[in-house]
Design a protein around this nucleic acid. Structure first.
Lengths: 228, 228
DNA sequence: CGCGATATGTTCGCTGCAGTACAGACAGGT
DNA sequence: ACCTGTCTGTACTGCAGCGAACATATCGCG
């Protein structure tokens, strides 16, 4: 069991107080924690789970814009004083998370200035990651984007294999399923990964980083610089 | 001379206090107010100027991700406790703005809770607009994106014509110059706009809205709902 | 006026991805 | 063992946008 990095940065007393207020819950892949523009009832601090945030497009398609693992928190809108978000939150890796209802969370934000400060910085990082993602979509080809996506997921899953079908990846990246098959085929030919029926294993992480566009490193550096 | 909508929402006393602390400055198209990852020295509340925020990509290319006019503020990073941003800020429409140095701004944030609250909401809107932009880039064709861009600029310029060359638009949208020539040609054929040597005039705004993808309306509605 | 600089228009070949269809591979249930 | 549903691989057409080169048009300036 891991801890949550945002909470780990708090002073022991603040952290204990906050964790005591939370429930530890088990999240299962596929769970939808919020629908777009519905009231947010809980915030989540993932421990070893991770959660996608998806923007719905034209009522049919989706696109993943942010991945929240134990380095982050789901529910930043509440920090900004708004109790909904246009993004859908979907569990993408099963595991544990600390959960806190919205009202309690607001109370904790008032009581623990360091928490607000930390989460503000996290929001800054998220914003910049969003900017990087937009640029990546515009300029980089699908295989680069796929490599980046796998690296980000790998960081949060901290084990080298996970359950991801091509169809699922296509929904995340907002492309056709066949596009993923091709891109993944390229990466597989270079012995960077292997997969069969929804089970992807990263064989050569360093190689994958080399193939991926710089966007991965930019996002990662941003996090370390502001929150590390 | 317009006022700034974020400030206009404050109570008279707060607003007057804040405005008294600001300098009114004249911004000229092309001015670069910040470079990426450099220290932010001032924040700006545009009056009748407007400012692009651009993400640099691979050290050569740019992509505009946000446009800040009198409905917003430039310098939200400071609200989040970080004194830089990875985005470049470039004046895209000449005009006036209220300027405040970073230290004073921080002080005002402490003194005027309503300001912090308002700016937090604005950050939320920006974040969602960023999400919408990313989706738009991924799913929508260039002529739709161009229509959206022109509408957003038109909103902030509040007069129907502005100085924009195809080359400049290409840099904003992260595409080739020829791509803009084609897309603009399509819109011109439908009598929605006319241009000659850098001077674009919107002829039929309603028609342009109809042609544009839904992203324009989504962004606009989001602003009105949260801040309107 | 003539010149150079800038802005726009057009063309060509190429690539990446969309859309669609279909075939083979494998897993789990009965 | 068989069937069925799911996952993956392959093949095709079509289009949008890239990169590059070149042609034309317009403006400002000497």
């Amino acid at each position: 069991m891991q801890s949550n990095r945002l909470l780990a940065a708090l002073r022991r007393k603040d952290r204990d107080h906050l964790i005591a207020a939370c429930d530890e819950v088990e999240l299962t892949i596929g769970d939808v924690l919020w629908e777009p523009n519905k009231r947010i009832r809980h915030v989540y601090f993932p421990l070893d789970s991770f959660i996608s945030q998806l923007v719905p497009v034209d009522a049919r398609e989706n696109l993943e814009l942010a991945l929240v693992g134990n380095e982050g928190m789901l529910g930043t809108s509440l920090v900004l004083g708004v109790n909904s978000s246009m993004l859908q939150a979907r569990v993408q890796g099963s595991g544990a998370a600390l959960r806190l209802d919205a009202a309690s969370f607001r109370r904790e934000l008032e009581h623990i200035p360091a928490l607000r400060k930390q989460l503000n910085r996290y929001i800054y990082v998220l914003q910049n990651q969003l900017a990087t993602t937009a640029a990546c979509i515009n300029f980089h080809s699908l295989d680069l984007r796929l490599a980046r996506w796998l690296l980000m997921t790998h960081d949060r899953a901290d084990f080298g294999s996970f359950h991801l079908t091509h169809k699922f990846l296509a929904q995340m990246l907002g492309v056709r399923r066949v596009g993923i098959t091709n891109a993944a085929g390229l990466l597989q030919k270079r012995k960077l990964l292997s997969y069969s029926r929804g089970h992807i294993t990263i064989l050569n992480r360093a190689g994958l980083e080399k193939v991926s566009c710089g966007c991965y490193q930019v996002s990662k550096d941003m996090y370390e610089r502001v929150l590390g």
